[in-house]
Design a protein around this nucleic acid. Structure first.
Length: 548
RNA sequence: GUCUCCGUAGCUCAAUUGGACAGAGCAACUGCCUUCUAAGCAGUAGGUUGUGUGUUCAAUUCACACCGGAGACACCA
């Protein structure tokens, strides 16, 4: 929170300064963490920006601003000086850091929450894989990113809902039902071939075997619902083992099949609405969406000439439904292979009368699998794929999630199966978890020490201790950065940084010693560290072990 | 052909709405365990940020062109 407090104070200082120079502009400067070789806590670039507008030397502007800062921020700033091309470097007082340490110890798992956001309803929709087979490794990436992003938004105080959209109607369901039926009949001894474009995986066999063992006859079996039931159970279990649980599973059937008293589905109504607003029209017996009006490169079909709706029609109705449930903001997490849909869905949202800004579609690049140096093609139809479960079983939930969250969504991720196995004990996740284990170990040991005095934070004045507290205070900044960029990957970097600082502290500063005053203060410090580590790992869905 | 994303150390990737000498992990090399966990620490080495031009006090970041990789372009779901 330290950085936000300083930024907010600097904002008013700079605003006034700019006015005093009769400049009628808002200067959007940054407060940053300087490079390691610079001895300062924060760097401000305002002077350079103002100097440019006024066409004067940045150093003279910086000097003027420094005078004001020294005068008005004496309670937090210890040192303030000019550096480089005109940066204003700030060093904050230790008392400021101690206040932050106090706040962490006081708020614990609620540290970093921002109250005023609590009213806003946000939905994160992710995974949403078709219930035609088990989740594969690519879905895992979407699951890890979506789930962690939702956890982060929740921590920031948003009323966050995680939803899985289930495409349980349409042609694919017919193919699925037929696949199971054929396997069932083969098991019953019929000599029939299996079409190459049907689902080949072993899981279809397993469903068929179950049906055979239950002794039902062919006519009694609803192959579609039996198949979906088993597959959904698998999907749900796999996600649970990956620390992902959804608040809501939304069935496409609900908007595409269920009719109201007038015999209309929500899809019917959404399409009628678009027609009434002149955003859809009939041509060649089909119903077209005028998506070109809103930047799509061509119009799209909503209802085919054979009278069946396209997938898009359901999606329109689904987004309408989501907004009508009161969500202020919708976040959709899609695999990059869906990027062609972004323009049309954005168009739909606007045609339905909602704001484009309230829908954020995040595309994550697909995971490319490598095995023995050769790329592995992933297709649910050929059955040649690596499931999420296989990978989780091999490398563990924690390592797998951390690995997926190490990268920004829009960067391609190469997942080498052999490498993932090798990394099982060298993965960065262990480096971070080791911090939790080391803290826990010391705290356990400390219970034997009697008569500890009240902690005096002023004793925490070494470089290592200072760095540690400062890094802890960046927890809030990391949250906000994840919110702004819609990506949780900043937390993995944050954790690796804090682990690095902690392990250095551990080497140099012994916590339990004969000096009871120092012991008491340092125990408080590592208690705060364990809170921060646990909170951060929890946001990523990774556990913080007490022992390793 | 059009569009989206990517190209950074040997490998996998960061780099805070353009900031200071581009950073981590892994791999390599050299040291450190009678003291709270060595899954650790200290140190060495590793770079023309794909190429070029432009904008800027400042470019990995922005613009344009080219090279290379992944993906998307249905009255499929």
């Amino acid at each position: 929170m330290i950085k936000q407090q300083i930024t907010s104070k600097l904002n008013s200082i700079i605003d006034n300064f700019v006015k005093s120079k009769s400049l009628d502009e808002k200067i959007t400067f940054t407060v940053e963490i300087p490079p390691k070789n610079v001895d300062a806590d924060f760097a401000v670039n305002a002077a350079m920006l103002i100097a440019k507008k006024l066409k004067v030397n940045p150093h003279s502007i910086a000097n003027e601003i420094i005078k004001i800062i020294v005068n008005e921020m004496s309670d937090t700033i210890e040192k303030c000086e000019i550096a480089g091309a005109g940066f204003i470097n700030l060093r904050i007082k230790n008392s400021c850091l101690y206040r932050e340490l106090e706040a962490i110890l006081d708020k614990k798992e609620n540290y970093g929450k921002i109250e005023h956001k609590s009213e806003e309803k946000v939905m994160v929709e992710f995974v949403s894989a078709n219930p035609t087979g088990p989740l594969h490794i690519g879905h895992g990436r979407g699951a890890a990113i979506g789930d962690s992003l939702a956890r982060i938004l929740k921590h920031l105080g948003y009323n966050t809902v995680k939803e899985y959209y289930l495409n349980d109607v349409g042609n694919q369901m017919a193919v699925l039902a037929k696949s199971t039926e054929i396997r069932y009949r083969q098991l019953k001894g019929e000599k029939i071939g299996f079409p190459p474009d049907h689902y080949q995986g072993d899981y279809i066999f397993n469903i068929a075997k179950r049906l055979v063992s239950e002794g039902k006859s062919l006519g009694q079996i609803d192959f579609k619902s039996e198949s979906v039931k088993d597959i959904l159970k698998t999907i749900e279990d796999d996600l649970k083992n990956f620390a992902v649980e959804f608040d809501n599973w939304f069935s496409e059937g609900k908007i595409a099949s269920i009719k109201d008293k007038d015999g209309k589905t929500e899809v019917d109504k959404a399409c009628s609405y678009l027609v009434s607003k002149c955003n859809a029209y009939k041509k060649d017996d089909a119903l077209w969406l005028s998506s070109t009006k809103y930047n799509d490169d061509k119009d799209r079909v909503l209802k085919k000439s054979d009278g069946k709706y396209t997938y898009l029609a359901s999606d329109v109705a689904y987004h309408k439904n989501k907004f009508e449930r009161g969500f202020a903001k919708l976040i959709n997490l899609w695999g990059a292979d869906h990027h062609g849909y972004v323009a049309r869905i954005n168009a739909c949202v606007q045609m339905l009368g909602f704001k484009k800004e309230n829908l954020k579609i995040i595309l994550y690049q697909l995971v490319s699998l490598v095995r023995d140096g050769q790329p592995v093609a992933m297709s649910t139809r050929t059955g040649e794929f690596i499931t999420l479960k296989e990978v989780v079983d091999e490398v563990g939930k924690d390592a797998c999630r951390f690995f997926f969250l190490l990268r920004a969504p829009d960067s391609q991720l190469e997942f080498d199966l052999e490498l993932a196995k090798k990394q099982s004990s060298e993965n960065p996740v262990f480096y971070v978890q080791y911090v939790a284990a080391r803290c826990a170990s010391i705290m356990k040991e400390s219970t034997n020490i009697k008569d500890l005095p009240k902690a005096d934070f002023n004793l925490l004045n070494s470089k290592e201790e200072r760095d540690l507290i400062k890094q802890m205070s960046f927890f809030c900044d990391t949250l906000l950065m994840c919110e702004r960029t819609f990506s949780p990957h900043h937390f993995t970097s944050y954790l690796i940084d804090i682990a690095d600082i902690y392990h250095r502290f551990y080497e140099k500063c012994r916590v339990l010693s004969d000096d009871k005053n120092l012991t008491s203060a340092r125990l408080k410090l590592i208690f705060a560290v364990s809170i921060i580590i646990k909170n951060s790992l929890n946001l990523l869905g990774v556990s913080s072990p007490e022992k390793m």
